[in-house]
Amino acid sequence: MTLWNVEFSLALHNRTGKYQIGRAILADHADLIARTYYWRLAAADIPSGLRARVIGKLLQTEIRLRADPRLAAPARIRTGRPVLHLDPFTVTIHALTPDDMVLCHDMGPITHPGLFTPQVVSLYRRAFATIADIGPRTIFVSEASRRAYRDVYGPLRRSDIIYPPIRFPSGGPAGDPPDPPRGVGRPFLLTVGSIGARKNQAATIRAYAASGLAGRGVGYVLCGSREPGCEDVAKAAAATPGVVLLDHVSDEVLAWLYDNAAGFVLVSRLEGFGMPVAEAIARDLVPLISAGGVLEEVAGPAALTADPGDEAGIARQMSALAAMTAAEKARRRSDLSQAITRFTPERFRDAWRRVLC
């Protein structure tokens, strides 16, 4: 049985889906993990608070040193065991070997550089160039991400697709549902996901305004943590009647939003997997998603689709979603529910066990 060291530095600054996937791998396969590293520190628990900030600053300093060949950087990390990198960026500070393994969530900094800072683009270009050169086993969260890698870097020596598991919101105690968020009234369409340019919410808000749904009493609710481009989304939301923009919400409130929405909307420009779409389907919502790419891979052909750059098309599909009959929703839900049977915790755990053993 192979024992692995795990590189989980992303946990120092990231609490999105990447973090949840990493935590699930650590919890499911503790018997196969010797040590977990956060930068150069091996620790049993995920650093938090001041400790995490200090380690994160040191990590960023080393990354900056390695980005400039004129500067002296410390020797690359060698842990003495095969390393599972839970994000590609950490291969830039390790002595990567063919025996290592790298989890790739998306190719965004390579395929959509305009959505990221120049520093992030440079970091991931160096990371993927190293992966292409050394050839570790590479795990992708979707076929779309693997295809995007191959389009840029060519064939992979060893690769697998392991879909992440759906994280079902808890929903709160039976008989004690949470109060609706302030300003949210039914019926409404729902978008869940980080608020920013990557998710294209400013365009969907403009499409909602053009659809006339507000005048027909249908609201539009968005929630999620903030990322680059969130200012434009906030301005569009504030200027558009019928739109409610929430921050990150609790699992109980999220479950209420899913269970009371009339439909789900995520016409994003870039996704690694699109967990909110799978969660929405699991809560019996019909989604409107980006045409092509990973969201169609997740939802299957029963979802409504629109081109992320076509606001008029998004508006038409939002109107169609809001007006969809109960019979049409039931027909689509049957196919959608079948599509997400691929994303169970059991399948996720068993697939990772196979590649790690």
Rank of each mutant, 00 (worst) to 15 (best):
T2R: 15
L3R: 14
N5D: 15
N14F: 03
K18V: 00
K18Q: 11
Q20W: 04
Q20D: 13
Q20P: 00
A24P: 03
A27N: 12
A34R: 12
Y37T: 05
W39M: 05
A44M: 12
P47C: 10
S48I: 08
L50T: 14
R51N: 13
R51C: 15
K57S: 13
K57Q: 14
Q60T: 11
E62T: 13
I63D: 14
R64G: 07
L65N: 09
L65T: 10
D68T: 07
L71A: 10
A73Q: 07
I77P: 05
P82N: 11
P82K: 10
L86D: 04
D87W: 00
F89Y: 11
A95Q: 05
M101S: 00
L103V: 03
I110V: 15
H112W: 04
H112I: 01
L115Y: 08
Q119A: 12
V121N: 06
L123H: 03
F128A: 07
A129M: 02
T130G: 04
D133N: 13
I139H: 08
V141C: 10
E143S: 15
A148T: 06
R157H: 13
R157I: 06
I161R: 04
P164R: 10
S170D: 06
G171V: 00
G175W: 05
P181N: 12
P187Q: 10
G193R: 09
S194T: 13
I195T: 08
I195W: 05
A197Y: 00
R198K: 09
Q201K: 02
T204S: 15
T204H: 07
S211W: 07
A214W: 02
G217C: 04
G219S: 03
C223Y: 06
R226T: 03
V243E: 02
L245Q: 10
D247C: 04
V249L: 08
D251T: 01
L254I: 00
W256A: 11
L257D: 13
Y258A: 11
Y258T: 06
D259G: 15
D259L: 10
N260F: 01
V265Q: 12
V265F: 04
V265C: 14
L266D: 15
F273V: 05
E279I: 09
E279M: 01
A280F: 03
A280V: 02
A282R: 12
V286M: 10
A291N: 07
V298S: 10
P301Q: 09
P301K: 10
A302I: 07
T305N: 02
M324E: 14
R331S: 13
S334Q: 14
R342T: 05
T344S: 15
E346G: 05
F348Q: 07
W352T: 04
C357K: 08
C357G: 07
C357H: 09
